[in-house]
């Protein structure tokens, strides 16, 4: 597939290098400011995670006293051992991985298939079809009728309940459609001359040229399925089918909320998770999805179009 991704001509790169050397001082100043800005911004977004990491590696006493900032105090690894040995955590992790992989693959497929025809201005009734889709971004029947539907489809308490209804995400569909519209019509025209049908045009011409947007939408879907806890909260009752974010959510909620009503319910207050374990759980539940982006980043190469498009 890599061979389909054309690179920028090397002569252009060389030319650019030469130009770089002769940059004027406002351009240099701009660069300095730009780099400084992103270093600061990057630090501000990274520090909370460093803080969580430090907390997860510190003794509970130091965390409770709020003494942990960026470095662990009284270093310990027990929290990670505790979380990773917790069957409920590992079970939830497996459910989440499965859900994310299946959900992303299916949703990406259906959403792309939907976006393609809707990107064709020629399609009769296109405006109304688009409105029908966009309508559902704003209006929904609400939880009760949806639950009733899922109940009648025997989907309650099953994993497909968590991804089947989300297979067409209208926002994501519109982003792909928008991208397809930006591809030159000449692509389709020349393929048609060769007698190719729409499915073949989509698969062999549009998709390879749309890797950046497909990577983006795959990321959006993956993050959506990974982070979704609400649907699981409503549709899943069996503890062993709970995904990770629901597990995490409940871990954090139970620690804060039960403290409020603890007077009548001291046993639950006694059983809340230590803060260092909460920090470790947040990190362990976030890191897998963070790894997706760097992996997809290579598809964000500038100028995929050049070379393959001869207008």
């Amino acid at each position: 597939m890599d061979s389909l991704t054309p690179r920028m001509p090397t002569s252009a790169q060389a030319k650019r290098r030469r130009r770089d050397i002769r940059r004027s001082w406002p351009e240099k100043l701009f660069d300095v400011c730009n780099y400084t800005l992103f270093v600061l911004l990057g630090l501000s977004t990274l520090l909370p995670f460093v803080n969580l990491l430090a907390k997860s590696l510190s003794s509970e006493a130091a965390v409770v006293a709020g003494r942990v900032n960026l470095l662990p105090i009284d270093l310990q690894l027990g929290t990670y051992r505790y979380v990773l040995e917790d069957d409920a955590f590992m079970g939830a992790l497996r459910v989440s991985l499965l859900l994310t992989v299946l959900g992303t693959a299916l949703s990406l497929l259906v959403t792309t298939l939907t976006a393609y025809p809707l990107s064709k201005p020629r399609l009769a009734g296109r405006k109304w079809l688009l409105l029908i889709f966009i309508f559902t971004m704003l209006f929904s029947g609400g939880l009760i009728p949806t639950y009733l539907l899922m109940h009648n489809l025997h989907l309650v308490n099953t994993l497909p309940a968590l991804f089947l209804p989300s297979m067409v995400n209208v926002f994501n569909m519109l982003v792909i459609k928008n991208y397809f519209e930006g591809l030159p019509d000449s692509l389709e025209e020349s393929a048609k001359l060769d007698g190719a049908g729409h499915i073949r045009i989509l698969l062999s011409i549009y998709l390879p040229l749309s890797l950046p947007v497909l990577a983006t939408i795959a990321l959006f879907f993956a993050v959506f399925f990974w982070n979704d806890y609400f649907n699981a909260m409503i549709y899943i009752s069996t503890p062993s089918l709970k995904p990770l974010q629901l597990f995490l959510k409940e871990l954090l909620v139970s620690s804060s909320d039960f403290l409020r009503n603890a007077t009548l319910n001291p046993d639950q207050a006694l059983n809340t998770a230590p803060q260092s374990i909460q920090a470790a759980s947040i990190l362990l539940a976030t890191v897998p999805i963070l790894l997706v982006y760097p992996f997809l980043q290579k598809y964000f190469v500038k100028g995929v179009l050049v070379g393959s498009v001869k207008e």
Partner: peptide
């Protein structure tokens, strides 16, 4: 609250 005493008091003694 007595159920929070162990964690709070231990943390205080530590700091």
């Amino acid at each position: 609250a007595w159920y929070n005493a162990p964690s709070t008091i231990k943390a205080l003694e530590k700091s």
